[in-house]
Write a protein that binds this DNA or RNA. Structure first.
Lengths: 145, 145
DNA sequence: TTCGTTCTCTTGAATGATTCAGGTTTATGA
DNA sequence: TCATAAACCTGAATCATTCAAGAGAACGAA
C-alpha cells in the first residue's frame, strides 16, 4: 500500500498530538456520524464499535479532542453537553425549547467573532456564540393542535 | 399614606399574579441590585434583608419570577445559572472564559429575535441569544504578563 | 374580622451530569 | 526491547438542581 494515506481518522488524532487508540478513533467517528450527541449517546456509539469503554474514558477523550479542536462542545441552557464534529466554520445553532433538538445554522457573517459587541466593556472577544431559540417543526404542530 | 403608590416592588409582584412576601420582595430587590448573581449569592442577599430563607424557596421564587418575566435567567456554558433584573430589552452578554465574569451588551439590532437564521430548519424562532466569549480586562492582563 | 383556599416556605432526600483519585494498561519514540 | 507519559480503568465525590410532603401564611370572600 502507499506509505502515506491522505488523512484518516487515526492520522488526524496523531496530527493533533494524541495517541491513536481504538476507543478514540471510534469516538471521533461516532461524533462525526452523529448529530449533536450527548455523552451517553457517544459512549454507546463507541461501545457499538469497539466493545467496552468506560464513561470516564469518554469524558477524558472528549475533553482532549475538544482541546485539540477536533470536536466542538455545545451546551444550551438546561441541556447536558453535546458534541459535534463540524468545527472551524463558526456556525451557530437552533434549539427547540420543548424537546431540546439542535440543528445547525450557517453563520451569515463569517469568521469568529462574527458580531461586534456594541460595547465590549474592555473584554477581548474572540467568539460570538449565537443560539436561536424556538420550537422545532414537530413541537410547534403539537403545541398548536 | 397615599392609597396608591406608583409601582413598588410589592405591587409588581402582585401585578404578576404572585403573592407578596417579604422573601420575594427581598429577592427581587437583591437581583436588581446585584450583577448577574448566582443562586447562592441571591440567597445570601435575601438573608441579609429578611433573615432566614431556605435555598429551595429561593429556587422556587426564581422560577416563578422568571416565568412572570420579572427576572431573566442566563446560563453560560460551564456556569451555574445566573439571574438579572434587566428584562424586556433583549440585550446580550459578554462572558470571560477565565473567571466567568458577565457584563451586559446592548443589542445593536433591536427586539427579539434580533437576528434571522440563514436557514431555520422549519423552527419557529422567537429569540436569538448572543454570548460574546473572551477575556475580561483583569484576566487578559494577568494572562499576558 | 374570620375563614378557607391555595400559594409559599420548610426540611430532608434524591437525581444527574461531571469531576476527582489512585492505580493499571498501553501506545510510542528512543 | 524498554521507559515514559498518555490513556484507561473502577469507584467515589461534588455540585447544582429538583422532588416530596407537610407546615405556615397571604388574601379574597363571607
Amino acid at each position: 500500500m502507499t506509505a502515506s494515506q491522505p488523512s484518516t481518522t487515526a492520522e488526524e488524532l496523531r496530527g493533533a498530538g494524541l495517541r491513536v487508540t481504538a476507543a478514540r478513533v471510534a469516538l471521533l467517528d461516532t461524533v462525526r456520524d452523529g448529530d449533536h450527541l450527548d455523552v451517553e449517546s457517544i459512549a454507546s456509539g463507541v461501545r457499538d464499535r469497539v466493545g467496552h469503554v468506560s464513561l470516564q474514558a469518554v469524558y477524558e477523550a472528549l475533553y482532549a479532542l475538544t482541546a485539540a479542536g477536533l470536536v466542538r462542545r455545545i451546551e444550551p441552557a438546561g441541556s447536558p453537553a453535546r458534541f459535534e464534529g463540524r468545527v472551524g466554520d463558526n456556525h451557530h445553532h437552533v434549539v427547540c425549547r420543548s424537546c431540546g433538538a439542535v440543528a445547525d445554522v450557517d453563520c451569515a457573517v463569517g469568521e469568529a467573532p462574527c458580531l461586534d459587541a456594541s460595547d465590549d466593556h474592555g473584554f477581548s472577544i474572540d467568539e460570538a456564540e449565537v443560539i436561536y431559540w424556538g420550537l422545532c417543526p414537530g413541537c410547534s404542530t403539537t403545541r398548536s393542535s
